[in-house]
Design a protein around this nucleic acid. Structure first.
Lengths: 212, 212
DNA sequence: CGATGTGAACGCGTTCACAGCG
DNA sequence: CGCTGTGAACGCGTTCACATCG
């Protein structure tokens, strides 16, 4: 198999969501051009992305919606239930929990940790907040491989080290800091401040050239 | 001025945060190599990024921390207060509100909207949740140019259209859907489901090649 | 001498154009 | 004939290498 770029994976994820919507609307077949229009890319890009993983289309016809959907599920590893640990029982975690696509794709928060003794033992969306001290034990006992980090930046690296040593291999990071991990561990950082600053930049530029 | 790529802006934002940390530690000067190590990139990349906007360094010495910090602030348009509207008074918005870097960089949530009549009039982190109906009036009255969308995907496009027609030119979108906007409007989408699926893909791949 | 600033080389993802097949 | 699958061309961001200057 050829090598697959990160943007490609992001688009596959997007295609999958669109296919679910199409399936719900009763559509049976889509062309690369149609998918492209809905996802904001080009038909050639759609075909290239898909062709990296096999040949799913019917020439002269397009792609079977439900077939492609299940193919993408398989490619993205969504055919299973993924137990997830949440570290930091704050608002971000709650938001994630309420995010319906989260569970629908097989991600289940199965442990919530917090360093604040006041929160430990408290109920949290049907779970109980566990003590930080138990992190290693619980993560490895439950076979958790994916964790969401929602702690302050200063605490993040320490948490990550402990998670990784307990078997976690994928991390979604909301702490605004760069995390050091072994090659074998995948980190995705969501940095809202950075996104906002991107907006600030764009607006400022527009204003300056408009005013010039 | 040469054209500036999106990744470059993201890195500038990152450099800025590192510079703030360095300044807080009393560091006066940094080399491109030092900044590169801290930001996970290369020294050449740091210099290229900065050189797009001017020549801030001293040869043989490096960059003045506080000088570079304020230059970056200027470049990113952070020298001002940005009033922000939040549409959707749910958990994501609360998370954002609690995010300290948010206010520190000049972003202030100055209006919160929700479609749910039960929430309207309620207090929300010191603000009052406004009726969706008032959106156009309030956004334009308060000169709001940046909005955060935290509503269900199905409702997002309609909200965006109304925001844009009221003067909003920058949007941070948490709804898992592609938004249609005029050229002149900047959209940044934060798609947590997509990030999680990226993790799922990486872990699945690792497992398969490991097991092979 | 040391670290910056930058033109040139490079690698890689995207786009193009068309052959291939239902 | 229509739309997919794909090698080739392209554009662009990253990396390299070194001239430049404090």
């Amino acid at each position: 198999m050829k090598k697959v770029s990160e943007p490609t994976i992001g688009r596959l994820s997007l295609y999958l969501r669109l296919l679910m919507e199409l399936a719900a609307s009763g559509v049976k077949t889509v062309s690369s051009e149609d998918l492209a229009a809905r996802s904001g890319t080009t038909a050639a890009q759609v075909r290239k992305d898909l062709s990296l993983f096999g040949t799913f289309g019917k020439r002269g016809l397009g792609y079977g919606v439900s077939e492609l959907e299940s193919r993408l599920r398989g490619i993205l590893g969504l055919g299973q239930r993924w137990p997830v640990a949440l570290v930091g029982a704050g608002r971000i975690g709650s938001a994630l929990f309420g995010y319906e696509n989260f569970r629908r794709q097989g991600f289940y928060i199965e442990a919530v940790f917090d360093a604040d003794p006041a929160k430990i033992g408290e109920g949290w969306n049907g779970l109980v907040v566990e003590s930080d001290d138990e992190l290693e034990r619980i993560v490895s006992d439950r076979g958790i491989e994916i964790a969401v980090i929602a702690v302050p930046a200063a605490a993040a690296q320490k948490v990550v080290d402990r998670l990784v040593s307990s078997g976690v291999r994928g991390i979604l990071n909301f702490a605004p800091t760069r995390l050091e991990v072994p090659e074998s561990v995948e980190v995705k950082t969501v940095d809202m401040a950075m996104e906002m600053e991107g907006l600030s930049y764009a607006l400022t530029r527009a204003r300056e050239s408009g005013a010039a």
